[in-house]
Design a protein around this nucleic acid. Structure first.
Lengths: 209, 209
DNA sequence: TAGATTGTTAATCGATTAACAATC
DNA sequence: TAGATTGTTAATCGATTAACAATC
């Protein structure tokens, strides 16, 4: 039974992938899997799989492998997706609206409560049943509704100020979609689409490795 | 003058960030910067900055630092964003449409030529002036227009087949937005939103490090 | 029990950081 | 020239992989 060690960024990034893959296996009615088979399927190394799971505790059984449903339950708990999370989105533009319409998050327990925008034409409308409110009301709303996660999808210039306001109002984390290096006192995940497409462009241009 | 060494994934991921940051400095009329100042501003290490740039060649000058506009030109060439790239999007749902409407890519030279969908109600419409065509025509279109990058934003089940078709038709890279572990023979960049929000959830739940 | 497979320690590999001679 | 700062080699740190004893 391994103890909980410090968990590297690399492991954190792999956990959702394990979760996805194991969910598929569970859906196929498979009950257990060995680190070796899992590694093969996910194009990882069996030692790495065992090390990863052992960051959190001994989930496996010698001679048997890992029970898929209990492993899934463990990962769900580790990722904290065994409970709901409330979000607000700052910026009701294309990205904000697309996120709001994407059913997948709701299913995983990430509940978008409201959007905020500065554009008077947008304020007062709804996106997929969620209200678009005035950006000026955001902090009050976050406080009143005890919102956990702030999603940043606004104009570049406004972004740092919005993030500051979210943190002030008590969000526990920020999900940033704007190509800006945010500075915040809470955990932040960046989805930098333009960085991603540039990286792809690089890989295409330098394809020989 | 450093030679071109093998470039790690970590460096590739940092290049677009350098590019963004240096662009801002250039916009402020700043002409040169030392690795130490740049590292400070970007919360990196000065040695790392120099190592990173030296993967590609000696861009700096002892006693002076780096000239920002020539450094930008170098990075533009390295990332291959000094020339245009053509894209098609498979899937005219929320994500596909949002990407099509996002002006930023067009400005960087990533030209979305068409979208493809299986839904007869979508086929024949336009998104931001770009045609939505029948998915059945995709491969032919890619061949005829010599499309470089295939964007995958379709239903989970269809995704691997679509990617295979894209590669068959000659795309040089795939930009995947669907939470699926694609297998492809060309460079692939994944934007896994659900993995990202799960990672954020983890960090919030385990905030003590 | 014998076989399988984990948990865990040790070895390797690679990336980050430090140091400093080269040089503008 | 003296000062600044790079390019580059060496040292450190951390992550991945290998090995194997523990154990189901």
């Amino acid at each position: 039974m391994g103890a909980s060690k410090r968990v590297s960024e690399a492991v954190i990034k792999r956990l959702p992938r394990y979760y996805r893959h194991l969910s598929i296996l569970e859906g196929q009615g498979i009950e257990r899997i060995s680190s070796e088979k899992l590694a093969l399927q996910m194009r990882l190394n069996a030692s790495q799989v065992r090390q990863d799971f052992n960051c959190f505790g001994g989930f496996g059984q010698q001679g048997y492998g890992y029970n898929i449903s209990s492993l899934l339950a463990e990962i769900r708990a580790i990722l904290a997706i065994d409970r709901p999370h409330s979000l607000v989105i700052a910026g009701a533009g294309n990205i904000g609206r697309a996120l709001t319409c994407f059913a997948g998050f709701e299913e995983m327990g990430f509940r978008i409560e409201a959007l905020f925008d500065v554009d008077p034409a947008a304020v007062g409308t709804e996106v997929n049943g969620k209200p678009v409110l005035d950006m000026a009301e955001m902090e009050e709303y976050i406080r009143a509704h005890n919102i956990e996660i702030g999603v940043v999808a606004a104009r570049r210039k406004a972004v740092q100020g919005i993030a500051d306001g979210m943190v002030r109002a008590g969000v526990r984390g920020i999900w940033n979609f704007v190509p800006v290096d945010l500075v915040a006192d809470v955990p932040t995940e960046n989805v930098h689409l333009s960085d991603s497409i540039c990286a792809l462009s690089y890989k295409i241009a330098h394809e020989e490795d």
